[in-house]
């Protein structure tokens, strides 16, 4: 190869690598990226059932129930404005407790139930997952804006 064409070839190869990764990444990103929703967002947004998303909030007090099959747990995730029913099959994480923050990855069903595929309960005692803290704070700000009842 001549010097010039070799240089062009190498640069071309680098550009090709960039384009290949972008081409592979973009559609996959559209399919695979899960947006974060708080329950109030979910109620307001028009979300297609079956689309992957991430739901965050607090596990509502008194809402956790184990179904008779022994492996399915249902509960409600709340940000104190709205709450969303969630269904999860499997062992809940160690830090999963009523009143604590939780992040659920999964899909919204046609009946409005959120089917969680993974549950992430993260509560180091001095720490709440930032998404949850923010969602709750926002919900509280909105609650404050409403006339007191």
């Amino acid at each position: 190869m001549k010097p010039k064409s070799q240089r062009l070839f190498l640069i071309g190869a680098a550009v090709a690598a960039l384009i290949i990764s972008a081409l592979l990444a973009m559609p996959a990103l559209r399919e695979g990226a899960a947006y974060f929703y708080a329950p109030a967002d979910l109620a307001a947004a028009d979300v297609e059932p079956g689309q992957p998303l991430r739901l965050g909030g607090l596990v509502e007090e008194g809402s956790v129930m184990r179904l008779p099959d022994g492996v399915t747990t249902t509960f409600r995730v709340t940000d104190r404005l709205e709450s969303v029913p969630v269904r999860y099959s499997g062992i809940v994480p160690d830090l999963f407790r009523e009143g604590q923050g939780v992040i659920a990855d999964g899909r919204l069903q046609a009946d409005g139930t959120f089917a969680a595929e993974t549950l992430l309960a993260k509560h180091d005692e001095n720490y709440m997952p930032p998404e949850v803290a923010e969602a709750v704070a926002r919900a509280e700000a909105e609650a404050k804006a409403r006339p007191a009842n």
Binding site: A28, E31, Y35, F36, D105
Partner: peptide, 8 residues
């Protein structure tokens, strides 16, 4: 806010 997981 968005999270990118294994499917991607």
């Amino acid at each position: 806010r968005v999270s990118v997981g294994p499917p991607y």
